[in-house]
């Protein structure tokens, strides 16, 4: 696979900080500038993808809403660390969108496939 595009790496749980929202905003902005974007969720970042989020009572925007618009921005590749999910007792079925599970052993190759890696 060629080295192209931007990998947005996000490892923070949502709502406790603006990191999850920032990662999504960066991904959308990259897409608007026609840069191919892949999202990679590791560690607590996998919590961003849980279904049924409803943060109105804590006065925050629902990440799930924006996440569901990702295909309209041509952001189709969502990667999730398999071990991060498993350590948290979660499975792909509990996530809001279809994802590609990445084994630890395949992480270096995923980094190598992208021109830039943005950690947010």
């Amino acid at each position: 696979m060629s080295t192209d595009g931007i990998l947005v790496l996000t490892r923070s749980a949502p709502y406790g900080s603006s990191a999850a929202r920032d990662a999504l905003d960066v991904a959308l902005t990259c897409s608007v500038f026609e840069q191919p974007v892949t999202l990679l969720f590791l560690d607590d970042g996998v919590f961003q993808l849980l279904k049924e989020q409803s943060p109105s009572a804590i006065a925050q925007k629902n990440l799930n809403a924006v996440q569901q618009s990702l295909p309209l921005y041509d952001i189709e590749r969502l990667c999730v660390g398999r071990s991060s999910l498993e350590q948290r007792g979660l499975s792909g079925a509990e996530l809001i969108l279809p994802v590609e599970l990445i084994d630890d052993a395949d992480l270096p190759a995923l980094l190598a496939q992208h021109r830039h890696v943005l950690s947010i």
């Binding site: 490892r11 590791l42 560690d43 660390g81 071990s83 991060s84 630890d104 992480l107 270096p108 980094l111």
Partner: peptide, 11 residues
């Protein structure tokens, strides 16, 4: 956990 993730991604 931060170190573990970094090491997992290293070659």
């Amino acid at each position: 956990a931060c170190m573990a993730s970094a090491l997992a991604a290293m070659t």
